[in-house]
Simulated scan of single mutants.
Amino acid sequence: MNKVPMTASGFETLKEELRWRQQEERPRIIEAISEARSHGDLSENAEYHAAKESQSLNEGRIGELEDLIARAEVIDVSKLSGETIKFGATVELVDEDTEETRTYQIVGDQEADVKSGRISISSPIARALIGKEVGDAIEVNAPGGARGYEIVKVAFI
């Protein structure tokens, strides 16, 4: 059973989604199935089939969330320190071509959101950053081509 690294906030987000799916979404779907069933012939009842599909998707996600929560290895980023980049680090980079500054936090796969500056530990840029320090230059082979970055700052927030 492989452990899944995640931050405390990512763990709480998964627990909240599981609670919502079990306590709010599941009863709503059951009600929709019951309502559709009352309309008669199930073989040609689109509402019934849509509700059953929603139920299947919801139950699948509940199973996935329960598995992730059971295998979670919650890492308290505030207790980490050091100069070397590792899981949970917030890293400030400067693009060597455009001089544009970017800030990323390295998080677990389930909580990654590039738009909010959180990148997955398994992403190409995070893999290139792990083990590096301030002042190091990295090259990332991204889908758009190779990009060069210089590490300006490392923090554990």
Score class of each variant (00 low, 15 high):
residue 102 R to W: 04
residue 118 R to K: 15
residue 62 I to W: 01
residue 53 E to K: 11
residue 102 R to G: 00
residue 78 S to D: 08
residue 75 I to P: 07
residue 108 G to M: 11
residue 92 E to S: 12
residue 119 I to Q: 03
residue 111 E to P: 03
residue 109 D to P: 00
residue 123 S to D: 13
residue 63 G to R: 11
residue 69 I to P: 05
residue 90 T to D: 02
residue 117 G to C: 10
residue 94 V to E: 14
residue 127 R to F: 04
residue 70 A to S: 10
residue 57 L to Y: 10
residue 67 D to G: 07
residue 100 E to K: 14
residue 86 K to D: 11
residue 77 V to T: 04
residue 103 T to D: 01
residue 131 G to H: 09
residue 82 G to P: 07
residue 102 R to S: 14
residue 69 I to C: 04
residue 52 K to S: 14
residue 71 R to P: 08
residue 109 D to E: 13
residue 101 T to K: 13
residue 72 A to N: 07
residue 104 Y to P: 02
residue 51 A to H: 09
residue 131 G to I: 10
residue 131 G to M: 08
residue 124 P to I: 02
residue 121 I to S: 13
residue 54 S to H: 12
residue 117 G to L: 11
residue 110 Q to L: 11
residue 74 V to D: 02
residue 122 S to A: 10
residue 100 E to D: 12
residue 114 V to G: 00
residue 83 E to I: 11
residue 60 G to N: 12
residue 107 V to K: 07
residue 115 K to Y: 05
residue 91 V to I: 13
residue 121 I to R: 02
residue 124 P to T: 14
residue 96 E to C: 10
residue 86 K to A: 10
residue 107 V to R: 00
residue 54 S to Y: 08
residue 65 L to H: 06
residue 107 V to H: 01
residue 73 E to W: 00
residue 101 T to Q: 08
residue 53 E to M: 13
residue 60 G to A: 15
residue 67 D to W: 04
residue 70 A to V: 04
residue 108 G to T: 09
residue 90 T to Y: 07
residue 61 R to A: 05
residue 52 K to Y: 11
residue 85 I to C: 00
residue 108 G to C: 12
residue 72 A to Y: 05
residue 77 V to P: 06
residue 63 G to T: 04
residue 124 P to Y: 05
residue 80 L to Q: 13
residue 105 Q to E: 14
residue 114 V to F: 13
residue 82 G to N: 07
residue 108 G to I: 02
residue 61 R to T: 10
residue 89 A to D: 02
residue 112 A to M: 06
residue 87 F to Y: 04
residue 76 D to H: 04
residue 113 D to Y: 11
residue 106 I to F: 05
residue 78 S to G: 02
residue 119 I to W: 03
residue 125 I to Q: 05
residue 86 K to Y: 00
residue 99 E to K: 04
residue 131 G to C: 07
residue 118 R to P: 05
residue 74 V to G: 01
residue 85 I to S: 05
residue 62 I to Y: 10
residue 92 E to V: 12
residue 78 S to R: 15
residue 115 K to W: 06
residue 100 E to Q: 13
residue 88 G to V: 03
residue 77 V to R: 03
residue 80 L to A: 02
residue 49 H to R: 15
residue 87 F to W: 01
residue 71 R to L: 07
residue 112 A to E: 07
residue 114 V to P: 04
residue 79 K to N: 09
residue 93 L to M: 06
residue 78 S to W: 00
residue 91 V to S: 00
residue 113 D to Q: 10
residue 76 D to Q: 06
residue 79 K to Q: 11
residue 48 Y to T: 12
residue 128 A to M: 06
residue 63 G to L: 11
residue 101 T to R: 12
residue 110 Q to I: 14
residue 93 L to W: 04
residue 54 S to D: 15
residue 55 Q to T: 03
residue 89 A to E: 02
residue 62 I to G: 03
residue 54 S to P: 03
residue 129 L to F: 14
residue 96 E to N: 13
residue 108 G to V: 11
residue 58 N to G: 08
residue 82 G to E: 06
residue 90 T to V: 09
residue 110 Q to N: 09
residue 88 G to Q: 02
residue 55 Q to I: 06
residue 69 I to L: 09
residue 83 E to T: 14
residue 103 T to E: 10
residue 128 A to D: 08
residue 93 L to Y: 04
residue 80 L to H: 00
residue 85 I to R: 03
residue 82 G to F: 13
residue 98 T to H: 02
residue 109 D to L: 05
residue 123 S to R: 01
residue 129 L to S: 10
residue 69 I to T: 07
residue 119 I to N: 04
residue 66 E to L: 15
residue 82 G to M: 10
residue 86 K to M: 09
residue 112 A to N: 12
residue 83 E to G: 12
residue 126 A to Q: 08
